[in-house]
């Protein structure tokens, strides 16, 4: 495309902003596409690991999307999956090393789940579905949008699980001691994974209640 025939699209055009907005609500990776559930169950018992994992996924996803988008024209289709995996894996190792260097305790809590970002179906899915056919800038926005859509759900789930399960937020006691003296107890069930699934279910319920276009007609 030559500059003379078509006007350059502004960086934050409505179309580009949509790439960020849609995955947060209408095509949310967790609540609508039901991808990446595994980590949503595993790391959401406390807020801090959930936020760190969210940030890691944002970085990994944005960068891999851009890299694959840059490579897209020279990538032989038969080996594209392997190349995508290599890109994601290198990013994950980078993120893992940074976490180990700067927030060691959180990295310990997340343990294997940082490494498992490689297998997060959302990332592979976006590389295949979007980065392989779009320019770097939209690919970057799409990566940010999907990672945010994923992260928001993770953080909401973690908020309720930490509040109800441990009575804390970011490890700070928020439920006053008077409640406990009165007989209130932390809910041990919320700490277990099944409850994360139920919280995700409730989020889906609320989301569908307010977003009519998500309801299938049958």
């Amino acid at each position: 495309m030559s500059a003379g025939t078509k006007e350059r699209e502004p960086l934050f055009s409505a179309k580009n902003m949509k790439l960020i907005k849609t995955p947060i609500n209408l095509s949310n990776p967790i609540t609508v596409q039901v991808l990446g559930i595994c980590s949503a169950l595993a790391v959401t018992a406390k807020l801090k690991p959930a936020i760190v994992l969210t940030l890691s996924v944002i970085v990994v996803m944005a960068v891999s999307n851009v890299v694959i988008s840059l490579l897209r024209n020279g990538l032989p289709p038969r080996i594209r999956i392997i190349v995508q995996l290599v890109v994601i894996a290198s990013m994950v190792i980078l993120v893992d090393q940074v976490l180990k260097a700067f927030v060691y305790d959180v990295s310990k809590q997340l343990s294997v789940f940082v490494g498992l970002i490689i297998t997060n179906c959302i990332i592979m899915g976006r590389l295949e579905a979007f980065a392989m056919g779009n320019k770097p800038w939209p690919a970057f926005l799409d990566g940010i949008g999907n990672a945010l859509g994923y992260g928001i759900i993770l953080i909401i789930v973690a908020f309720f699980r930490e509040l109800l399960g441990s009575g804390t937020l970011f490890d700070v006691q928020v439920i006053p001691q008077a409640f406990y003296d009165f007989g209130y107890k932390n809910n041990g069930f919320v700490i277990l994974s099944p409850m994360a699934l139920i919280v995700v279910g409730v989020i889906i319920w609320v989301q569908r209640f307010y977003t009519r276009e998500l309801i299938e007609d049958n």
């Binding site: 107890k185 809910n187 041990g188 069930f189 919320v190 277990l192």
Partner: peptide, 10 residues
């Protein structure tokens, strides 16, 4: 089951 997993001490 909810009680059993949520408040096992009771």
């Amino acid at each position: 089951a909810f009680l059993f997993f949520a408040y096992p001490t009771d």
